[in-house]
Design a binder for these strands. Structure first.
Lengths: 343, 343
DNA sequence: TTGTAGGCGTTATCAG
DNA sequence: CTGATAACGCCTACAA
């Protein structure tokens, strides 16, 4: 093919101008004559020139690298995020560097900072639950690093966050279950140290109250968002003398655990018990019966986050409008829920 | 904290030597006096100095970036790979850049080359099915780029590949099903244009033959590795007048489809029909009944691939021993298979 | 509107 | 064994 990658010098020589002028064209500076502009543009095309990111970065102290920080067991979620981010960032000349980490580690902040520093990452997108860390956010801000958090609660400047309105989604879930006639509903939460868990619970409970119903504490069970914890909670719930007619679980993994326990106990879903989850992960549509759940527009959220971060990095429009930080999840009704048949 | 990141100059000045000598120490060159060595080492520690990757890259034309190229719908697989790779590469100072692509696109090669070129990726790990592309491999080799393919068939120099012995795994699967008394087994393959599909089929069939049994063409159905294609195949298989007593599906997604169809037709698994899959993805353990399947040591494979690639990049030991390119998957027995009850 | 010169932090060449 | 000095490819004051 070619001998070597062409440099800015090759372009300059070929076009009969100086590096500086070529540089101006590359970076879209206004102060270039129409003709020279066109000329250089054509030479660039002909030589198939593209600026060297490393050299560029060394000079301007940027890397054209975006980081993705997460500690999330849901691989499907991560995958959707990665694709969403890449869709936006690769077009803009950025690459995506992944960085799984440990949310509960006391070296979290240090670890993430190291990651950013070592590779001069231009900006990071932080996924839940890491995105809920106050310490990390504070450190990022303090060190003047660009970041966008993806979260379920509005806990930062709208410039630095993209949130899915899970309160609203849970309101929808509550209305749906009630409309199916369910009055006696058990709720398996995620870890109560997560904002997302509290938010979902609050959204559900307040809607129930609006409908003149209640979600007593005795019907709330804390889970850990894991399959096993779903099983544990389900056992406790279903072994009570009066069973609820419906169970909501904070994620699909736990809902799958509920289904398993119900199956083992010979309880038919959805005839005798309705079950709903949250996430719409791979499981949800494959499991039998398929799961009624909440789907978040994960890819869209990620793409939005990528846009915000690039905007921030390039400071072209530091003020992002308020309108583009909130996305709406929605209810997906499948086979695991049905009208309440209890007298 | 600090004012700015210390540079090699700071270290040199502080230690009273020249940049060059510091550079030697950093890169572990032998030609440095014992004392100067120690001295510089200590200064580096004290200043918490670490070399700037961009500058380093610019000078040595390396980026300390590893690429991950894939077009695989199984997010769990991707996630395991990423973690496996990172475990190795982050310790060695490399970061991981992800690059999903389209295997069937006619611009695949171009796209991947562009990715590598644009960011001066030092080496790439290619996942199936992209890893099966002859064109891509040829282009990579021709352009002298470091790469390691992860695959199920030994189709490259052992330096450039890590393969999981799926033929052996399928032999195990065949022996297991036969040992359970199954003689009439249906086989849903993956796309027959994939080596992996052919390999699994061949491993299964040849073992059956060794056991004096056969897998007639009439029992082989081509699927697309998707849930829907599993459903389609299962419908064809289960609507025949004489049903097989067991069905193997080329992956768990399709096996889930089989389970779904069986459920809808009122066929009990595993009492009336045994079902097995391949992958051990998230579904396998969650679905009811949980799935007998094959688990590959994906993380280990990925880690191995990372090691090989770094070794190749740093050319410290260009010849990797033959022994470390093969990994062994193994059978996981769960609830979806049982002894054959047919007369 | 365009060009000159110096710098970003390393590595590499070649003397001493 | 060590040290000036020139790349590496691009950006950016500062001039012209």
């Amino acid at each position: 093919m070619s001998d070597k990658k062409p440099t800015i010098n090759d372009v300059a020589r070929e076009a009969g101008v100086s590096k500086r002028t070529v540089s101006r064209v590359i970076n879209g500076s206004a102060n270039v004559g129409e003709k020279t502009q066109k000329l250089i543009q054509s030479v660039i095309e002909r030589l198939d020139y593209s600026p060297d990111k490393q050299a560029r970065g060394l000079a301007s102290s940027r890397s054209y690298l975006l980081g993705l920080i997460y500690d999330n067991p849901d691989a499907l979620y991560i995958d959707q995020v990665q694709r969403g981010v890449l869709e936006v960032c690769s077009k803009q000349g950025y690459e995506l560097v992944v960085h799984p980490c440990q949310y509960s580690s006391d070296k979290l902040v240090e670890d993430c900072q190291g990651f950013i520093r070592r590779s001069k990452i231009d900006g990071v997108i932080v996924l839940p639950p890491v995105s809920e860390s106050k310490q990390l956010a504070a450190a990022l801000r303090e060190n003047n690093q660009c970041y966008v958090r993806m979260a379920s609660v509005d806990l930062d400047d709208h410039m630095n966050i993209v949130v899915s309105d899970e309160r609203a989604a849970m309101a929808e879930m509550a209305r749906y279950l009630v409309s199916m006639g369910h009055r006696d509903i058990a709720f398996i939460t995620g870890p109560l140290s997560y904002y997302s868990s509290l938010e979902r619970l609050a959204g559900f409970r307040s809607t129930l109250q609006q409908l003149g119903l209640a979600l007593p504490e005795s019907q709330v069970f804390e889970g850990q968002n894991s399959y096993q914890s779903g099983i544990d909670a389900a056992k406790r719930i279903l072994s009570k003398t009066t069973r609820p007619t419906a169970i909501f679980a904070n994620n699909d993994e736990m809902a799958a655990g509920v289904l398993k326990v119900a199956h083992n106990m010979g309880i038919n879903v959805p005839e005798q018990l309705s079950v709903a989850g949250f996430d719409d992960n791979l499981l949800a549509s494959r499991i039998i019966p398929s799961l009624t759940t909440i789907q978040r527009p994960v890819g869209a959220m990620a793409a939005l986050a990528a846009q915000k971060i690039i905007r921030a990095i390039e400071k072209s429009d530091p003020v992002s409008s308020e309108s583009d930080f909130l996305v709406k999840p929605h209810l997906i009704i499948r086979e695991s829920t049905a009208p309440c048949t209890k007298s």
